[in-house]
Design a protein around this nucleic acid. Sequence first.
DNA 1: CAAATCTGATACGGACCCGTAACAATCCGT
DNA 2: ACGGATTGTTACGGGTCCGTATCAGATTTG
Lengths: 114, 114
Amino acid sequence: MSVDLNTAQALKLWHGVALALVQDDEPDLSLRQVSILLTIYLEAPPHTVRDLARKLGVSKPVITRALDSMGKVELVSRRRDEKDRRNVLVQRTVKGALYLERLADTIGNLARRL
Amino acid sequence: MSVDLNTAQALKLWHGVALALVQDDEPDLSLRQVSILLTIYLEAPPHTVRDLARKLGVSKPVITRALDSMGKVELVSRRRDEKDRRNVLVQRTVKGALYLERLADTIGNLARRL
DNA sequence: CAAATCTGATACGGACCCGTAACAATCCGT
DNA sequence: ACGGATTGTTACGGGTCCGTATCAGATTTG
């Protein structure tokens, strides 16, 4: 199930998606924010702030702030870990799932048009 | 030559590329900046500030500032249009071509691993 | 039980980006 | 040749993000 993309196709795909994201009305998520969002939705839970920071190679405040801003628009949610109340568990939301579904559609449609 | 990506594949691809861009040492380009860069490299010249602003659906200062910052790291260059000296022609550079070549490699490699 | 450790959050100073509005330079029409 | 249009840039006020350093709360360790 491997997908082959030559240089021009890869760039055209990236161009199309970037353009679509810039032009739609949603507020642009930064590269770091989408990385976090996709990690939460694609990898198995639990997801803590510390884990996410390590996976992305950024400082913890970056994660805290990204969760603040994405939480404000309900793309993710936070909950205390009752087993170890120092931890915060980052969780998925309906809005987050819908957002990523639309993103996947955008990518898929552009890829088909290559 | 169409490329088919299902939902999970599209998201995994986007996740991998976003992660790679966040983790590498290069300073992150914003979504708008890559859009500009890719437009310049994929579409036929000439490219003026006004054209780019219209294509991206953003204000002209966004383009000017993006060209300032990308010009500082030599990803693009500017030149006055001698035919109509009001216009600025945005041009490609060697560094910009190399940057996009590497981006395409990243995308292509991740796609193949799907 | 007290000290060391670990967690996520916050304060701070600096950098960047945004859109609106104003600007100088250039071209064009009359 | 001169007033009106057009182009790219800059000034401004406001917002967001960054990393470092620091913090309070929870847990583990001795």
